Amino acid sequence: MASQGTKRSYEQMETDGERQNATEIRASVGKMIDGIGRFYIQMCTELKLSDYEGRLIQNSLTIERMVLSAFDERRNKYLEEHPSAGKDPKKTGGPIYKRVDRKWMRELVLYDKEEIRRIWRQANNGDDATAGLTHMMIWHSNLNDTTYQRTRALVRTGMDPRMCSLMQGSTLPRRSGAAGAAVKGVGTMVMELIRMIKRGINDRNFWRGENGRKTRSAYERMCNILKGKFQTAAQRAMMDQVRESRNPGNAEIEDLIFLARSALILRGSVAHKSCLPACVYGPAVASGYDFEKEGYSLVGIDPFKLLQNSQVYSLIRPNENPAHKSQLVWMACNSAAFEDLRVLSFIRGTKVSPRGKLSTRGVQIASNENMDAMESSTLELRSRYWAIRTRSGGNTNQQRASAGQISVQPAFSVQRNLPFDKPTIMAAFTGNTEGRTSDMRAEIIRMMEGAKPEEMSFQGRGVFELSDERAANPIVPSFDMSNEGSYFFGDNAEEYDN
């Protein structure tokens, strides 16, 4: 993207840094990872977990959730003011799984939030270390993106479920800051804005008074975040219109849905970061690795190297396929839920299948599930090659597409044709070009129609051997075009429920 120079890199967003050079960025990201790792080690000690239990991804998720809940100030305040039966607002906890007599047992633990905050700050040299908290939120978000298709949420806001490739980060909490905003897809931002506008339509006082002023500035800020994701002048001009509207209503909703559809071809720039579970960072720190000293990046080879040398386990339900569970977590670790499966298959070195073909449910185990038949197995999170994460949407291309997802959002900077089903997408653009945004709409449609099938995206960008740390010898991959490109292809993934 041309304006790259004016933006802070995501590592800076990730670490609240002012302008830093590459070495400083690597050190501050490393410091953040160190903090998460030290916190995780301490929690495993508190909970008396064995090494194996500490490497269980379900335990990692519970521990991450506990610290996120302990620092969720708004919710904590709300819980104190609106006490609900049987919930102690000062405590947080969740299921911890232990191996007892050759069987997995679930144990519900409860801790004072104050105590968890103390352990977290102690692991982070006394700081609140917001960057580390956001990092864990993005890992949870990436896992949700890989596990669930947001059909219901899309339909509720009037969008087409086939636009799911635009929904990265749709389950990120509001408090995820600049680093969170960077990884949100165009569809996620559109959905947040539509929800806001709908509230304004239904509630006369939404934009009024002292609160209304705050609401208005939040609305304009979200519009600017979305505008910054678009790469064409016409899309940005249309966002200006939406932002400046005196009284946002149905016309703005129409414009936003139009823009979301246009992003299936004229893709937005959305950041991709490899955020790993805390149970990967903990053992690495415990083994003596100093992330701050060595430096770390979320968008280069580092996460690949770390996963190459990590042992992570997962509980497996009786009829689940461990290899499929591994694929789910591998995609989440690489922030690749909406990437082209052919690119992923090449990088991973084994075939990556669409969601609907995987015999696996989510990673988390519900409290009512029976533990008797639970097994555990090693997650295979290694890769054959590594590639640089991208934040450009890439230019655009036609490809055989599917009944489910009709476009992709690249996660890796790797040369390819970008699949999208042009006739299906263009069919949504018939007729409606009147109104105050008509010239911009016409211009956007013209650009979409001009998108050429034979153009290559990320020209000359390749993948790298894991021994090639400096990215000196790019390998331009070859793809098996007979395979499906979309992950949520004609899909039956479970729906995400809060």
Rank of each mutant, 00 (worst) to 15 (best):
R26M: 09
F458K: 07
R199N: 04
N492S: 06
R26S: 04
Y111N: 12
T424I: 15
I138L: 01
S60N: 07
M481D: 09
T378G: 00
S217I: 13
G187I: 14
Y385K: 02
I25L: 01
T396F: 01
S457I: 02
R355Q: 10
P89I: 01
T232G: 06
M159G: 03
A428D: 14
T378Q: 06
L143Q: 13
R216D: 07
R38Q: 08
P410N: 10
P477D: 11
L256G: 04
Q122A: 04
E339L: 03
G93W: 11
S50Q: 02
T92I: 15
D497C: 08
L61A: 15
E64S: 06
A271H: 09
L193G: 15
T62P: 02
A263K: 09
A366P: 05
S245G: 07
R400F: 12
R174F: 02
I475E: 09
I425R: 12
R436Y: 10
E220Q: 08
A472C: 00
V343A: 01
G177M: 08
I388W: 10
M448F: 12
A271W: 09
D480R: 09
G394I: 08
R195N: 13
F71Y: 08
R391T: 04
K357C: 03
L56E: 05
K184Q: 01
D72R: 04
D203P: 13
M105R: 01
E380K: 07
G212C: 12
P453R: 00
T157E: 08
G17V: 13
I316A: 15
N395R: 02
E380M: 10
R267Q: 14
R382Y: 09
A284D: 08
P161D: 01
R391Q: 06
V67N: 10
I445D: 10
M105F: 00
E192Q: 15
E46P: 15
E64H: 07
M13Y: 00
V280W: 12
V100P: 15
K198D: 08
R106H: 02
I194L: 03
E434K: 04
E434I: 00
Y97I: 06
R55Y: 13
S84H: 02
A387M: 11
G490Y: 11
K98L: 00
G54Y: 06
I33P: 10
D72Q: 03
F479W: 00
E210N: 04
K273R: 02
